[in-house]
């Protein structure tokens, strides 16, 4: 499915374009953002633009199984994330997102995540949506619980971060589970 556009009361998800490279690198450079994400080197804008171009090309094929999208608030990039299946015929997808710190604390994460769940079930007709989080990231876990996900287990030493292996908790919601009111 391309292009994907979903709007909530305050934010929207849309396809990324190569024109978003500057805004995204700016956002990703925020040191507050990566406390819980796995170690990753930030590419320069030019490399990132090329990477986006490749992704957009892959997104336009019938085999699309990665929905890497941007979050906008009043038309401005406020985050990114999306949904990833193992293949175009998979019945489950993992969701994830990053929100710029300026947008934290107002329920934006919950809105962004619940829109991804709706995309997975209502439009992509998937059966299972799951997400992982650092056990110490209580804000993120709270969001997953609020959008109706249930705790399923803890993968031991699953993510390498700051020179250490950290556990990750897995949360999931099925199409047959109740989705909390939006």
């Amino acid at each position: 499915m391309y292009p994907v556009e979903i709007s909530g009361p305050r934010l929207a998800w849309r396809e990324l374009t190569t024109g978003d490279a500057d805004a995204l690198i700016d956002m990703l450079s925020d040191p507050g953002l990566f406390r819980y994400a796995a170690d990753q080197e930030l590419p320069d804008v030019e490399t990132y633009r090329g990477f986006l171009a490749e992704q957009i090309e892959a997104a336009r094929t019938p085999e699309r199984h990665r929905y890497k999208l941007g979050i906008t608030v009043d038309g401005v990039i406020a985050g990114m994330g999306g949904l990833e299946m193992t293949s175009a015929t998979a019945t489950a997808a993992e969701i994830g997102y990053l929100l710029a710190p300026a947008y934290w604390g107002g329920g934006m994460g919950t809105e962004a995540a619940s829109l991804l769940v709706d995309l997975a079930f209502d439009r992509l007709k998937l059966h299972r949506v799951f997400a992982g989080a650092d056990p110490a990231n209580h804000a993120s876990i709270r969001v997953l619980e609020k959008i109706g996900m249930r705790y399923e287990g803890t993968r031991r030493e699953d993510v390498f971060k700051d020179g250490k292996w950290r556990d990750s908790v897995t949360y999931a919601i099925l199409e047959t589970d109740a989705r909390p009111a939006r």
Partner: peptide
């Protein structure tokens, strides 16, 4: 065993849970 993932696979018209 680290957890049970619900609805992980579909086989013979039924969804199955899987152990991680």
């Amino acid at each position: 065993e680290e957890g049970v993932m619900r609805g992980y696979s579909f086989k013979d018209d039924v969804w199955h849970d899987s152990v991680m």
